[in-house]
Nucleic acid binder design. Structure first.
Lengths: 339, 339
DNA sequence: CTGTTTTATGCAAAGGTTTGCGCAAAGCTT
DNA sequence: AAGCTTTGCGCAAACCTTTGCATAAAACAG
């Protein structure tokens, strides 16, 4: 049999006073005499009194919980962002409940529902790669439930978000390739409807243009964001009559898969093909060759997302600040020819 | 201004009936007439009624929340285990709140307190590497708050737990080295007070014995579980007069750090030194050479831990089942000489 | 037509907290 | 001494749900 937690009533009864007096004393309300306050506090400590958050929540109509939906939990990128969110949430006395969509629209909808059922005060979401309709989010907006997007956003919705400048980053990668003598630069992209795919592609194209390179449609392949499809996409590139001398993957998962595939084809990195990834997973530095990658300020992204969330709670429905963070191209072995 | 969620009272008022009738109708209580039930359900759907979990929780004295404390979130090992827990928790209508100790005893204690404040119904914990005292857990046991350990456990406490058979695994690694011609097998261990360190060391020693190898104290180095200390430990091994021809790291973080260090010393893996890790992080297959590792059934560990938790809630204080799962040695390039 | 059973619904308490308002007693003013 | 202010505390409502018990109306037996 579980013991009940100590309540205000328990304390009040034991001291023969009213509940309200106990409540006030514990909050240092000066209206309660000093000696009584002292006595009450003493007993509270002794009985290990902890305010019941359910009762408080009921009263104040708030659960102090934020729902977070990520495509998956096991990717360093997301867990790192979550760490950042957690930090800011904690500072504000909030808790985070995590749900993963597993990159499935269906599971994403389900997660939204589940989190709503548990009365989270709002949601911070990175949409799944399948997500191409947004009714489940529109419903949130209609009901004035705070919503923040990060990384992958539904651009048609007026919602605060934190993203990175993917176009700029992709442009820089392209230029980096060019400056290192590459002329047949390929890009493995993700689903077209994702903002991240779109922007990085734009940057890629812009980069080509600035470098005076022609866009060769064969060098742009699109695939879902998993290792299998990435391997397939890479194979497609390696089977071209004119194979690329540089490949840029929309994220590191893609880049690692490409790396494996390139090695399998007995091609050398970076000698035959230069390779660059995106998001800078932790293991970029342990693969061989070490992977040049566009680093994301993940911790900061998480913190910003949480900050936006709290601002959204405060300012209400019309708040839709878009935070765009800069990335950083960290050059390692995979993209620069050894001298 | 946030709209309030629809409550039973809202529905009752709108229909001009009492709250209890609405409540009963929604639970298909046959005592309410079919037509009224239908009408009520219709309105409930229309108004998007969701029962308030706070009110329910207050009534039933349960929050449906489990607190989980992990050393960190960004390691694949932990996030994968958490995924498993989440699955089982969801099936049981529970939510998980995650806190990371960052391998610090202080933060671990703080997390226990925070989670208790938010009235989680119990805790599932992997203790931090610093944790060598357990008062904060004993307090939980005294207050009959369900507690489950996973991977790293406080062995002195009578608490359900799920671990792997580290001794057996370490023995097998040692034998694997021996069978591949290694005779100077080193082991980089973690803090001695951790059960995982202790058991794997036992297995290592047992393996040596079974293979008829002498235990050389210099070949056993202990370090904290981070890349820096692991690099230091590796350097120590590589500076020995008789350097080892095989190194076994207590986890993959250690093994990767060792790999970098070995490469830095211009030694070849596995030719000069064979290397094996533990826990099989995702990137074991992308490093070069690919890393032989002892795989953990992480998803299953998470599920088992959650299962134990629910069993603990049911059976109460005297329940202390210990689940020990088997690992699997996955042999890759880092431990076997190329022919 | 009266008394009893059945049927359908409402009342109220409990769970824990906060807080506006009320009220008594004590202290003060003139 | 009478009236006024201050001080210190309690009452009760509100937040939302469930559920044992009460109650009203309807149906039925005799």
């Amino acid at each position: 049999m579980k013991k009940r937690h100590t309540s205000l009533k328990d304390l009040a009864d034991e001291l023969g006073i009213s509940i309200s007096t106990v409540s006030r004393a514990l909050k240092n309300n000066p209206i309660i005499s000093p000696e009584l306050t002292r006595k009450i506090k003493e007993l509270a400590t002794k009985r290990n009194y902890i305010p019941n958050p359910l009762a408080m929540g009921l009263l104040r109509q708030q659960t102090k919980m934020i729902g977070v939906i990520v495509p998956d939990l096991v990717t360093h990128f997301y867990s790192s962002i979550i760490s950042g969110m957690e930090e800011v949430a904690k500072e504000n006395g909030y808790y985070i409940i995590i749900a993963s969509s597993n990159e499935s629209l269906e599971k994403e909808k389900e997660s939204v529902n589940n989190l709503l059922k548990s009365r989270v005060e709002g949601l911070i979401v990175c949409i799944s790669q399948e997500t191409n309709s947004f009714e489940h989010f529109e419903l949130l907006i209609q009901n004035e439930i705070p919503l923040v997007f990060f990384d992958r956003v539904a651009e048609s919705l007026e919602v605060p978000s934190v993203t990175v400048d993917g176009a700029e980053a992709a442009k820089n990668v392209t230029r980096h390739f060019y400056e290192n003598g590459r002329r047949h630069i390929a890009y493995i992209s993700g689903p077209e409807h994702l903002n991240i795919s779109k922007h990085r592609k734009e940057g890629y194209l812009k980069g080509l243009k600035e470098c005076g390179l022609e866009f060769i449609p064969d060098l742009l392949v699109e695939c879902n964001l998993n290792a299998e499809e990435a391997a397939l996409a890479t194979r497609k590139l390696l089977n071209l009559k004119q194979i690329p001398d540089a490949i840029f993957g929309i994220n590191d998962t893609i880049a690692f898969a490409a790396m494996k595939e390139i090695k399998k084809h007995k091609l050398r990195i970076p000698d035959d093909i230069a390779l660059v990834g995106f998001t800078d997973e932790f293991h970029s530095t342990v693969v061989e060759p070490t992977l040049t990658s566009v680093t994301h300020p993940t911790l900061q992204m998480g913190k910003e997302a949480a900050r936006l969330f709290f601002e959204s709670i405060e300012k209400g429905e019309n708040f839709a600040e878009k935070v765009v963070l800069q990335t950083n191209l960290v050059i390692r072995e995979s993209s620069v020819k050894r001298i």
